[in-house]
Each structure stands twice: as C-alpha cells, then as structure tokens.
Nucleic acid binder design. Structure first.
Lengths: 332, 332
DNA sequence: TTGTATGCGTTATCAA
DNA sequence: TTGATAACGCATACAA
C-alpha cells in the first residue's frame, strides 16, 4: 500500500498554504491566477488524490449510499441495482450493497454494518419491522422500494400488485380461460399476498367458483414451479392456464409441462409476474407483468441524492404494465 | 440526520477519559473492571456507535473493498457478487460495487471513484490495460477473476476456457455431431477468443473441415443468438448442433429455433457456456459448461481479506465442468 | 491502570 | 485574496 500524497504536500510544492489548495479544489473562493496555476501544476506533478475519508470526516458526509437488497443474485432485484448504478454515474457517490436474504434478522445486521458509513439508504423490499424503518428514517434519508415508510409516503415507491394481477386475470378471462391455476408466492410475502388476493377476487368477480385444487403454494424459486405443476397434475384437476406468482416459478412450471409433453400455449397458457430479463427470450416468450425495476432503482437513487441535498422529493411509482407475449393463447 | 454520539461523550458519561473508552472498544489494553462496567453502561445508555470513518482516517483503513464488475445486472457476474457478499458476511467489511460496462474508459473512471475509499480491489474481467493493472496492484491489494495480474499470478483466478470448450466439443463429437455451428462472442473478448480457438482446433483435431458458414459472431446477448440462428438458416448450411459462446446467446438461439418449429434436441442439439442460473430450468435444460462464479467470488473475497491482513495468498481456480443436460442428443 | 497530548487529511472560521 | 488555527472522531505514544 503506497502512501498517498496529501494536500499539505501539494501546498508545500506550490508554495502556498493548505487552505488555498483546499479552496481551489472545492472552488469555494477566489484565488489568484498565479497561485491557481502553481497549485494545479503541483497536483499534476505529485499525482495528488484527495482523501475522501478525511473529507467525509470534516463534512459529515461519506459520499456513499447504502442499498439493502434481498438477494443480490436475483435477476429481479438486480435490475434495480443497475438503475441505482446508473443514477450514481457521474456523481461522487458510490453504492454499498448489502443483502438481507428476506430475513429481518439478517437485514438488521446488514444495516448495522452500514451505519455511519453511508449518507442515505435505499431499502428494497424485505421484512424489516415498521418501527425499525421509522427509527431509521429519523436518523438519515431513506427511500424504500416496495415498502411504505410510515409517515413518509413520498419517499416510497410502491407498485400496485393487486391491480396488475386483476388486469392479468382479466386478460386470461378475455382469452376464454376459466380454469386458471395459481402457483402462489410465500405466504408471508406482502407482494405474494396481494397477488393471491387479486387472483381470488378476480375469480369471484367473474362468478367462477374457486377450486382449492387449483391453488398451490411456492417460494418464488424455479423448483416451486416444477413441483407446483406436478401437484396440479397429480390432483387431476382440469386447468387451461397457469398463473405463477413470479417469472422464476413460471420457468419451473414450463419445464414441468415440457417434460410431460404438454405444449405451451397450445394446451396450457402460462403467465408469470415480474418480466425478468430472460422472460423475453424464453421459449415461448412469457406473458407477464412488467415491474420496471431498473427505472425504480434509478428513481430511488435520484430521489435519495435529492434528499441528501436537502431537497424535497415526492416519488411516484409508475404503473405496472401487462406484457403480452407468446405463452398465452385464446381457448377454443 | 441525527447527530451521532461520540466517544468523548461516552467518556464523559462514564467519568473516564476518551482513551479508556477507546481501549475498551478495541480491547488493546487492560482496564479495571469498575471502569469497564461504567463505560459499557454508558455505551448502552447513549446507544453509541463508533464512527467508522474517523477510525478509518486514523488507522488508514476504510473497512470496505471495491469490486469492479462489468455488468452488475448480468446473471453471470452476479453470482460472483453473491459469493463476495458471503465471504464478507461476519466481517466488518462491506463491498462497494462499480460497473465497467466492458469499456476500459468506464472501468478507469469507476476505479477512480473507488480510490482512497477501499482497502483492496477485486477485478472481474474487463479490458483494463495491463500496466494499469500493474500500477494498481502496487498501490493496494488486488485479486482478479478472469484476468492475469502481471507478476502476481497467485492473485488471479483464471479459468481454462480453452480446455473446457475442447471437452464440450469432444462431447458433441461423441454424440455423432460433425456439423457444429458456433455463435461466437465479441471478437475483442479474451474468453470469447479462447472459445473460438478451441472450437476451431477441435474441428481440426477431428479432421473436420471448417465451413465458414457455420461460424457467426455475436455479442454475448440473447438477441445475438436469435440473429445468429437466422443467419445460419438463411445460408442454408446444414448443421446438427449449435455451440453458443455463452448461455444468453443459447437462449436466443433456442427461441429462434422454437419460432421456426425446429425441435431441441430432436433436430438440433444446443449447448451454451457459463451455466447461468436459469439454464437448469430452461426448456429443455441446457447442456453447458459450468463456470463456478459463486465459488470464485467467495475465493476472491477471502483471498483479498487475507491480502489486506498481510498474509500470503496463493489462489487456484477450480476446473470448469461440463454439465450435460437435456438440450443435446445422440445423432442418428 | 489511566489520562494528556498529538496526529490522521481535510474543511471552515477567523483575522490579516 | 490569503494564511493560521481550530475542528471532525478516533487511536496511540508518552507521561503519570
């Protein structure tokens, strides 16, 4: 580890005082041309790099923002991380990612490691207690994606899973499907609950009776889709469409159908939720609900930067879009 | 932003000197039981959190490591990031991710933002100039994945793309394929070049003539697979297998075949490279070469921590494994 | 065993 | 316009 050149050394080299160098660097005050040149020359000569840590100490800023994600390897959250990166591009801020694994305990310890070293926080999903969130929001700027921060609704980006699911169901009804199976997400996951509710309400609104055998529970992973279809098939219940609570489970469902020679969409229509990156290139391309995670990540990061700068922010989440592709088909 | 409690305040509360508190926190010296209790009590009461920034300034450590990735949203690199996270779990270190977008210019500016705020660096792939890498390695501990650091081979994790591709080709030969198309990766990408070389060498070793029409170039994205197959089909060249230089392009190729009603693997065998997470649940599950990115990420992070601690590290990359699934089939 | 004083690299305050 | 000087929060050499 080579020692870094300091501001004081630059000042000595240029024959000025440290404060002058600092002023030039931050552009806060007027400096004579002569000294400015001398300093710039010295900076170049010594290859001086300002020490961000020291700057942070005196200014009370760390120039980094924390991002609490649930699964850094999930293609879904990932897209949001990319959006965060993008928003930070060109600023002096860097993102620090920590992973909560959908476990409130893990989330807390992860946040613990972030305390004191970030100027703000982006919380993506998770199961952190509401009062923890409130307490956190009192100590630093926070933007949440997919969660409401109590008394700070303007700092949350919440997507309407319920209505998107209703739209999705309506689309299946339009195609003539009445026997629609649902592979639900985890019972304790807010989004999954909303999607399940909307599924049930949609059936009710369409005057279709709810066949319990059409409902299986999953955990949002591919394997759950695989198992879900197996369960469905074993129960010998009739269905013409499957609504998986997320794309990953739809992939698993697709594979189970493929293995049994059941064609999609000819024999069974399949829909997911999320519009993961690969869904567009799935075979067949998957009909799903697009969650604009990339955009959300960008908005969150931009909002957070504004918040850190003391500006007023008023976030508004975009609407969820139904993406119709080739995995669904009109029933005959 | 609530003001944080400082060590000095804890000292006042406990009626001791700041140094005593510091000693207790770091456990560097003996302190009497009475004072220790008083201090611990004060810490709890004031809910004191040490300021990592200040600690970093005086100790010359930042307690964070930088990770230069090429595409944070790619499922491939992502898996490595997860491994990094895992290795850092339980330590006081947090990872700071920056994105190079496969562009050496972007990589440099990304690294620029990391300078001075990380204690070490993990470089994943990329096209950074060799001497930049060397210079970097002189200023701080560095571990590279998929790149050689000049004169620091022990700090690199390099996978043998060439031999893995040869194994893959041999497997296709075994199945009776002789007309094997290749959708290559970007011409300037080292891994892609190796895979292409191995493809050509394998054909030569098997005494098969190289039909130029069987070779198309892609950019590692799904769309390239789609276009690649279209090109192949238009040229009316005969082939029984397609080797895509990565899984993403294999997905695109699969879709193109699906759209034309060409069955995989019945009519065409398809292989990829990477073993992305979704490949296992692809329809049909994709035969590919497994790159243990997760493991590599973990090893890199563990190695870097050791390096930072002044230990000697000698990294050795695991072998690439051929993963045979259902997208390949014996030719008749 | 404990406390005082100093320094880490920078910005900010105050005189000059 | 410039330069001392004092913070920022912590660790540590040194003195007691």
């Amino acid at each position: 580890m080579k020692r870094m050149v300091t501001l004081v050394e630059v000042a000595q080299e240029a024959g000025v005082s440290p404060s002058t160098v600092s002023r030039i660097l931050s552009g806060t005050a007027n400096v004579s041309q002569r000294k400015r040149h001398a300093v710039e020359e010295a900076i170049r000569k010594l290859n001086y790099q300002p020490n961000i840590i020291a700057k942070g100490l005196v200014r009370g800023l760390t120039m980094s923002i924390g991002v609490l994600t649930q699964d850094i390897s999930s293609p879904f959250y990932n897209d949001a991380l990319l959006g965060v990166q993008e928003a930070l591009q060109g600023t002096d801020y860097v993102p620090v990612f920590v992973d909560g694994h959908w476990d409130s305990k893990d989330e807390e310890t992860a946040l613990q490691r972030l305390m004191g070293r970030v100027d703000g926080l982006i919380i993506m999903g998770g199961s952190l207690a509401e009062d923890t969130l409130t307490r956190l929001a009192e100590s630093m700027p926070i933007i949440a994606i997919g969660r409401k921060i109590p008394e700070r609704e303007n700092h949350s980006l919440i997507l309407d899973n319920y209505w998107a699911t209703r739209k999705l169901m309506d689309y299946l009804f339009e195609l003539g499907h009445t026997r629609i199976a649902h592979i639900a997400g985890p019972k304790d996951h807010p989004d999954a609950i909303e999607r399940l509710h909307a599924y049930k309400d949609a059936l009710e609104a369409a005057n279709l009776d709810q066949d319990e055998r059409l409902l299986v529970e999953g955990d949002y992973h591919e394997s759950a889709g695989l198992i879900g279809v197996a369960t469905l098939l074993e129960s010998r219940v009739m269905f013409t469409a499957i609504f998986a609570a997320n794309d990953q489970m739809a992939y698993g469902a697709r594979l189970a159908l493929y293995r049994r020679g059941i064609r999609v969409p000819e024999e069974v229509s399949l829909v997911g939720f999320d519009d993961s990156k690969t869904s567009e290139y799935f075979s067949p391309p998957l009909t799903t609900v697009r969650q604009p995670m990339h955009e959300l990540g960008r908005q969150a990061a931009e909002g957070l930067l504004a918040l850190i700068n003391g500006e007023d922010v008023h976030l508004e989440a975009p609407e969820l879009q139904l993406v119709i592709r080739e995995s669904t088909r009109r029933i005959r």
